[in-house]
């Protein structure tokens, strides 16, 4: 079995600082492999351990940090790493990314299973997986919180607002993995030191016949829920104040 796992370089959401207006200061924010993507790598490596899959990790971009997250994937246990060297990768639109991955499938695959994160830690558009599945005509197991491979089939559990969905499909399949799916392994020092020496295959988008038409991201604005301040005096009668608070919260549609 051949598996591909696609990973994205994103901001380390735990380290984002905000300016006085509450806007994120992104310039100085460290970048890491997305959280859900890390879980996707973990699933791919588990598949390797349990079912002997050969796992390739891919990222799209050209910075030093892109190479680093591929080394991180190596440290977690993938067998091969590929970088699609697109300049300005953060400005590529989702469809172009999906097309790049689809043509990688032709060039390096075909893969029996392609793991992607269910959403990136920064943009969280969650569309790469579905687009890729439809471009390739693969089945899609989306938003998977629990993943197993039994009797030649992938079985997943997906938790949505209205309940849990159990889905299964035989390969070829695209699985989008949530950050709840597992606890990604932490590479050991030896894994880290060894990963430095592993090769990273470089491919340019034009090698894949893809035009990286730039959809320029003009502005990323923060959607702010207007904050309302309500003061309730609880110095005299606490019970009354609690009643009042509950009523107001209800009126606001909070509870």
């Amino acid at each position: 079995m051949k598996a591909l796992v696609a990973i994205k370089l994103t901001y380390d959401v735990n380290q984002i600082k905000f300016d006085k207006e509450g806007n994120p200061i992104l310039d100085s924010c460290p970048k890491v492999m997305g959280e859900a993507d890390k879980c996707a790598v973990e699933e791919a490596v588990r598949l390797k351990e349990r079912a002997g899959a050969e796992v390739t990790a891919v990222t799209i971009g050209s910075s030093k940090e892109h190479y680093r997250i591929l080394r991180d994937a190596y440290a977690m246990g993938v067998d091969k790493a590929v970088i699609v060297k697109a300049e300005n990768s953060e400005k590529l639109d989702a469809l172009t990314i999906a097309r790049i991955l689809a043509s990688l499938n032709q060039r390096l695959g075909p893969f029996d299973v392609i793991f992607v994160g269910s959403g990136a830690s920064d943009t969280h558009s969650s569309v790469i997986g579905p687009m890729l599945a439809s471009l390739l005509g693969y089945k899609l197991l989306a938003n998977s919180d629990k993943i197993s491979f039994e009797d030649g089939k992938f079985k997943v559990v997906s938790t949505l607002e209205d309940g849990q969905y159990r889905m299964e499909a035989s390969p070829p399949v695209v699985i989008t993995v949530t950050s709840e799916a597992n606890e990604p392994r932490i590479p050991t020092i030896k894994d880290i030191l060894r990963s430095k020496k592993k090769p990273i295959e470089e491919i340019s988008p034009s090698d894949l016949g893809i035009e990286t038409r730039e959809v320029t991201l003009r502005n990323l604005t923060r959607y702010v829920v207007p904050r309302k301040r309500i003061k309730i005096d609880a110095t005299e009668n606490v019970e009354e104040a609690v009643e009042k608070l509950l009523k107001m919260l209800e009126e606001e549609g909070v509870i």
Partner: peptide, 9 residues
């Protein structure tokens, strides 16, 4: 880079 990756781990 190795030291930073190790520290993070």
């Amino acid at each position: 880079e190795d030291e930073i990756r190790f520290r993070d781990s």
